[in-house]
Amino acid sequence: MNALPPERIAAPAARQSPARLALRRFLRHRLAVAGLIVVVLFVLGAALAPLIATADPNATSWSAIRRAPSATYFFGTDENGRDVFSRVIWGARASLAAGFLSVAVALFIGVPIGLLAGLAGGWVDALISRIADAMLSVPFLILAIALAAFLGPALENAMIAIAISASPVFVRLARGMALEAKATDWVEAARALGNPPWRLGLVHVLPNIIPPLLVQATLSIAEAIIAEASLSFLGLGQQPPAPSWGSMLNSAQRFLTQAPWLAIFPGLAIFLVVLAFNLVGDGLRDALDPRSEKR
């Protein structure tokens, strides 16, 4: 039997870190990259809203009521003569803020509690798990509506409501992963060395569960954006006259026959940004977890 040439013995894949490999797998996923580009464009649009918007989003105008889309008004004007294009651009702020912030809060609430449940076990785990079960037994949107209703209508309250409603998913995910990690040799070894439980959770378990958390967080952002739009549509989120895609759709409904463009553009914005986050989430899942790659 011939000896292998040296370059085949040193496997080239071994030199790359898992993160690099994941990045490469992600970049190969064309739809996911397209999704990421759309997300970046929306984030830039929201950040640079004052520069991109062609008009003051709240400036009403008697002479420009319900104008159809044109070169002056890209997306037309609404029932108060406000420029829809500028309102859609500014509205991205409310939607993206709700998406990112509420999921960030949900992570901050859910992950430590889930890790605690998984690592502590016993009655702590039982109590936390029952609370998470109870919250998950109320459908996400209904829980968010109820919380927002009791907190009062405001964008901040809508975000709090969404964050709380989204957190049990992370509790469950972190708990499950902590249980799985607890059974592994490296955590066992760390425990044998006398590490306290908080250190086990923070240093040894958390870094290993980041990939599934990242995937879930991306998909949760998509859900949170829909939830914010839904709450604003119902009047429980962003309050008028501040622009938000959901509340724009609500008022558009009254002028469907006369001014259909009012309903088309804000909805299209929600759809595109949610689609983009879902694409990124799917791509991340395939890239970060080789096991789940399409069979």
Partner: peptide, 17 residues
Amino acid sequence: LFGISMPNFWLGIMMIL
């Protein structure tokens, strides 16, 4: 993917339209 990403209230408005 379309079905999952479509906010159903917008789809509703578009279908009424």
